[in-house]
Design a protein around this nucleic acid. Structure first.
Lengths: 193, 193
DNA sequence: AAAAACCGTTGATATTTATCAACGGTTTTG
DNA sequence: CAAAACCGTTGATAAATATCAACGGTTTTT
């Protein structure tokens, strides 16, 4: 099960991991299975661990006063799920994260991760790269959200992330884009002619 | 002029910088003055440097097909201005950054910064903290943008960032929030009764 | 000091998007 | 396998927000 993680890490660093490093990583990442709909994080709890997704799909969302869910992140294989703010600040999370499909995760706490990063420089490098890519992706999404119409936002998303479009139902994609499912349905109909 | 940077760094690390470290930093950050409206970065150029703002105010924005500006960031003292995506990927930027007020900056290239981070561990730690805070702020902004109405977004922004509200004109704040200046004007009028 | 640019506001109107309700066709669950 | 939950769609309507044009009061530039 840890193979997927080794592959992921090796793809993001210069020299491949040594046997010893792999052993250290294996010892620190705890496997966990979630069945569809099970929670990984619930609003109000502190996010103590982050999870690398080996297999499956998850979503992160907040729930507003009216009970409406707002999807802030969608995750599939090779993504890291967690609430960074809660995890770093040790504050109760405003988000829920649950499994959309049956999911296999590898879990690690922030403290363990920091420790591992000291022991395995390549891992530290990988995390930095991951953070950068993440920052870039967030910047793009933010920019798209404040600059573009719902239609353009969807087109952009669908062309950049076709895997998500085919994997998650439309109403989740709509929420992720900050629009209602009805509006997305109409946008797609429109785009089709 | 570098004093402001030392103060900033010391506020974000455990032990204060040594004399030698301060000298090294001073040697690597190049002072630069921009007059109001001067560009720091123009769309199409690669962002080669990032700038620490010692004094002044700047804005980062894209310009759409219709010529409308969309403000993606507003900066004041103690902020770092730059386009991370362009800087890391060495791709032409989609953004402009210019001085809203006369501004004093300290500039450094990415390569120089990475080098400095190796030589001064505390600086590396500071940058990591800065990145984390930034990631958290972006996450919050994104969440607010997809979940809240224009009115709520403005209220949240005004209460979290009063300095910006008093320092930048309303039409820039509006653009930053992804709404028009007329809508913001009406929201404020509404809120006032 | 005059001219020009900038800024916030307002009114009238158009466009975009949300809301509410209903439906038929899945898929999941007991 | 029957009931329930889920999913996407559509229509009618309402609400939020954008657009366009104009104004008076700054502030900046010449």
């Amino acid at each position: 099960m840890h193979e997927a993680l080794f592959t992921y890490i090796n793809r993001h660093i210069g020299l491949p991991l040594t046997i010893d490093e792999e052993a250290l990583i294996e010892a620190n990442f705890q496997p966990k299975k979630l069945r569809k709909k099970q929670y990984f994080l619930q609003e109000g709890d502190v996010c103590k661990q982050i999870g690398f997704i080996v297999k499956g799909a998850m979503r992160q969302y907040s729930v507003d006063d009216k009970g409406v869910e707002h999807i802030v992140h969608l995750y599939i294989e090779n993504y890291w799920a967690g609430d960074r703010e809660s995890s770093i600040m040790l504050t109760p999370s405003k988000y829920n994260i649950d499994a959309w499909e049956d999911t296999e995760l590898l879990l690690i706490t922030r403290a363990e991760m920091l420790d591992l990063m000291h022991k395995i420089p390549a891992l530290a490098q990988m995390i930095r790269t991951m953070d950068e890519r993440n920052a870039i992706a967030n910047q793009r999404r933010l920019s798209s959200t404040i600059s573009n119409s719902a239609e353009k936002r969807y087109e952009e998303f669908a062309s950049n992330h076709p895997q998500f479009v085919q994997r998650f139902p439309q109403h989740l994609i709509a929420s992720f884009l900050g629009i209602t499912k009805e509006t997305l349905s109409r946008i797609r109909k429109q785009a089709f002619k």
